[in-house]
Nucleic acid binder design. Structure first.
Lengths: 193, 193
DNA sequence: CCAAAAAGCTAATGCCTCTAGGATCTCGGC
DNA sequence: GCCGAGATCCTAGAGGCATTAGCTTTTTGG
């Protein structure tokens, strides 16, 4: 009997996992579902990934890299409010288009789990700091402002994705208004309080 | 053989679930774990709760009610920045003290799942709006500002709980600074852009 | 062409959800 | 006090998922 192999690689698995995540949520990313997808037994996947956790970490890194790319492209050549709006827009668009991947980026990941690929996470921070330096901020304001931005962006997307905004007013309108507010805050950061 | 009953009620289950959640995270809230806790077989719990989902929704309502209480008490008699700081402090303190319960409040819950107890969710909105009216905001600014606040608070807590803040600067310091910024934003909300 | 590495498979264990149907306890009413 | 109804708990069992161990088959480099 000539049974060809499935030609599975960790990369293929992660890509399939990303699709599963975006289709049905991060908790649909399961070793069984993945095995099913490749027409293979569950146990067979353990030659390619260490375990489910490993798979999800890889997925998180994939998604983070993708986000870095779209955000990086969006901010390129812009500064000030232009950059802020571009950054925020790219962030939100990615998250809404790829909710499962986005959710994956929100998992707690220990440095020991990423081995050498921590660069992805570093770059995300650099993008934010780069944008903030356009507002003339320095430490510790840089850290404070970066935290505020990340929190606001993430909080918004999370609430939007989890159906937390019931009001009839379009979320996009509130989002734009919040960006105005954030911009204004960043401009006057040094004078507040 | 005289076997006394365990005296289980849905309320007891939910309270135990809350403890499980705070101890090991929301995904440790499991029918099996709960049954174990009460010295009873898994299947027995299905006389008290419809299913796991039902349990988690009840947990979310419990936690939401608790948060409303502490926040309500914190804001009582205050206005302006006092109220904002009190609100935010109560919110963050509760979430950090009860991470599992807090996580439960972040689940997507359909109106059909809460039957008549939707009042809890309404009150949360009222608390926020009440505080914002102290800043003289009216619709649609009220909605926009409420969304920004919820997003920021939630985003901050989520990132803090998930270990997203790696920098050495104390999170509490950045948090305080962000509240200053938010206050300033709310004060000038009408003038921005 | 062959041996070792790689990629799958079967078998098993353990944990979890949930349903069906049976036994037992409790309690209100006679 | 007794009894039936309903509430509460149990046993059995199906099915899903993660993970390990050990075996077989396919590939591939020398």
């Amino acid at each position: 009997m000539v049974r060809r192999r499935a030609g599975i690689t960790p990369e293929l698995l992660v890509r399939a996992a990303a699709e599963l995540a975006d289709e049905g949520g991060l908790d649909k990313v399961t070793v069984s579902a993945l095995a099913r997808r490749f027409g293979v037994k569950d146990a067979s996947l353990y030659s390619h990934i260490r375990n489910l956790r490993d798979l999800r970490v890889r997925l998180a890194l994939l998604a983070s890299a993708e986000m870095n790319d779209v955000i990086g492209a969006a901010v390129a050549g812009r500064s000030g409010k232009d950059a802020l709006v571009a950054f925020a827009g790219a962030y939100r668009d990615y998250a809404l288009a790829h909710p499962g991947r986005y959710a994956a980026t929100q998992q707690r990941i220990e440095p020991s789990e990423v081995a050498a690929d921590g660069s992805v996470l570093v770059r995300a921070v650099e993008l934010t700091y780069g944008m903030l330096r356009g507002y003339g901020l320095t430490e510790p304001d840089l850290t404070d402002a970066a935290r505020l931005l990340r929190a606001t962006f993430h909080g918004y997307i999370h609430l939007e994705l989890s159906g937390g905004f019931h009001h009839t007013r379009p979320v996009a309108a509130s989002w734009a208004r919040s960006l105005d507010a954030l911009h204004s805050t960043l401009e006057t950061w040094g004078n507040i309080r």
